[in-house]
Amino acid sequence: MRLLSVTLFLTLLAVACTAKAAPLLAPQQVDIPAAASLTLHAQLYKPAGEGPFPTVIALHGCGGLGGQSEPVQPRYRDWAEQLLKTGHAVLLPDSYGSREFGPQCRVKERRVLARRERVADINATRQWLLQQPWAARDRISLIGWANGASAVLWAVRPQSLSRSAEPDFRSAIAFYPDCRVSSGLGWSTRVPTLLLIGAQDDVSSPAACRQVVEGARGRSALAQIVVYPGAAHDFDRANLPLRALAGSDAALPERGHIGTDADARKDSQRRVTEWLAR
């Protein structure tokens, strides 16, 4: 009996060590034809099988998509893995690297604008997905963070609809976008759109995002906002201690605070899953 117990213990330990040592999920790079002879490089996470799969186009923030030694930063890979568990494919276009630019957080005159180049990237990515047999044409959604979230808000405005790429997006999710421009433009959305932001976000503006959504409710019932009490910018990132921004890191905003909020992170994961299942 004792020998059996020892054998069982060693077996379980081996399984645990194997699981712990399992390699991180590796994305597949795909190239997407875009406007002005641009080839848009993107990273694809796809479930096993032939599909068709509901697919999420995920838009990185001003720090860019990849790190120095990895094609996708852990924060975006974390979300891709979460979405894969719900049966979604995830496609992350690299708006900066495809144009041979680095991080754009502290660039005074950005050459890749959320409302222009990044919306064009979104539309090119959707057009490419509509031609893929593994992608469910009527279940393509958007998710974005910070600058990528601002691009999402521009892409879902009624004026931004591309008639050549039907059907339309299924839904959209924007994590802490900069709503200050949209708040003065009478923003509205043509698809169900969820905004998620922390009440203590001093990089973006929760007050402006509230104004954007409240204004949209007068024209449409498609927009909703969740403001997390006590949460700062980047609240959904894992294992990021709250800190004030300082220094000259081009991959970080110039000012404000960033950091994980465990409760907001967990709740946002649940809400994203529910929103995409609509």
Rank of each mutant, 00 (worst) to 15 (best):
D234P: 06
Q200T: 08
G67W: 12
Q127D: 11
P27Y: 00
R190Q: 11
L142K: 10
V15E: 02
G49P: 02
E254T: 12
M1K: 09
L252M: 10
A16E: 07
W275E: 03
P253D: 03
L84F: 09
L276D: 00
N123E: 10
R115M: 06
G256P: 01
Q269Y: 14
A124V: 08
A34F: 03
V119W: 04
W134K: 01
I225G: 05
I122N: 01
Y96K: 01
E117R: 08
V107R: 10
R111G: 07
K20N: 05
R265D: 00
F53V: 03
V227N: 09
C209R: 01
Y228G: 12
T273K: 04
R75Q: 15
L13H: 01
R210M: 13
E70Y: 02
Y228P: 13
V30C: 07
L8E: 02
E274Q: 14
R2N: 05
F169I: 10
A246D: 12
D249Q: 11
R163N: 09
P27D: 00
S248D: 13
S205M: 04
A42S: 14
R265S: 07
E70S: 14
G102W: 04
S95C: 13
G198L: 06
D31Q: 14
A155S: 14
V227H: 06
L38P: 08
S162Y: 08
R75H: 13
D261L: 08
A250F: 01
A223F: 11
I173A: 02
Y176C: 03
S204T: 15
A244Q: 15
C105Q: 10
L129C: 03
D261F: 09
T86G: 15
S188T: 15
L44V: 11
D121N: 05
S37Y: 12
A223Y: 10
A232G: 11
L4G: 08
A48I: 00
R217G: 11
C209N: 01
T55N: 11
G49F: 05
P229Q: 12
A114E: 01
L25G: 08
T55Y: 10
R111P: 00
V112Q: 06
D201H: 07
E274N: 05
H60I: 11
I32N: 06
S69W: 14
A58L: 15
Y176P: 01
W79L: 15
L129K: 03
S95A: 15
T189W: 08
D178P: 03
P192K: 03
Q269N: 12
L8P: 00
L245R: 04
L252T: 02
D94T: 01
A42C: 10
R243H: 15
V203R: 11
A36H: 14
S220V: 03
E109A: 14
P52V: 01
M1N: 07
A114M: 00
E81D: 09
V56H: 02
P103E: 00
G184Y: 04
S188K: 10
S268K: 02
G218N: 08
A14I: 05
G215D: 12
A26I: 11
T18W: 13
E109P: 00
Q29P: 13
V152M: 04
F175C: 09
A264C: 06
V213N: 13
P241I: 09
I122W: 04
C179Y: 05
T86M: 10
A19F: 06
R217F: 03
S150T: 15
